[in-house]
Amino acid sequence: MTAFGPATAALVVVGAIAATALWRALGVFLARRLDPQGAVFRWFSFASFAVLAGLLSRLLILPTGDLASVGLEVRLGAALIGVAAFYLSRRNLLVGVASGTISFALAAGALG
């Protein structure tokens, strides 16, 4: 445990920046050795899609902090409304995101 204070906050941010930059730099180094047409490269693009999909299930179904205080049914319901609006608007991302988020805000406000 560490005492709160400006110096610690700065250290926390620097540590978080370094921890993230490390992965980006490792990716750059590995990419230099890869053939863009090759199997390894193709596997990594599919793995990236899967990681983002995993991140999505984490954000929607297993969130941390404030979002976790809103019920699962609100999060999933708002997401479904967003998806429905997306397809009803012929795949308009703005309509989908706005519908999902506004539904979420209304439900969180009404229930919270």
Binding site: L26, G27, A31, F44
Partner: peptide, 11 residues
């Protein structure tokens, strides 16, 4: 996630 993403984007 930035690791596989960088690998697949950079080339």
């Amino acid at each position: 996630r930035f690791f596989p993403m960088a690998v697949s984007l950079m080339p």
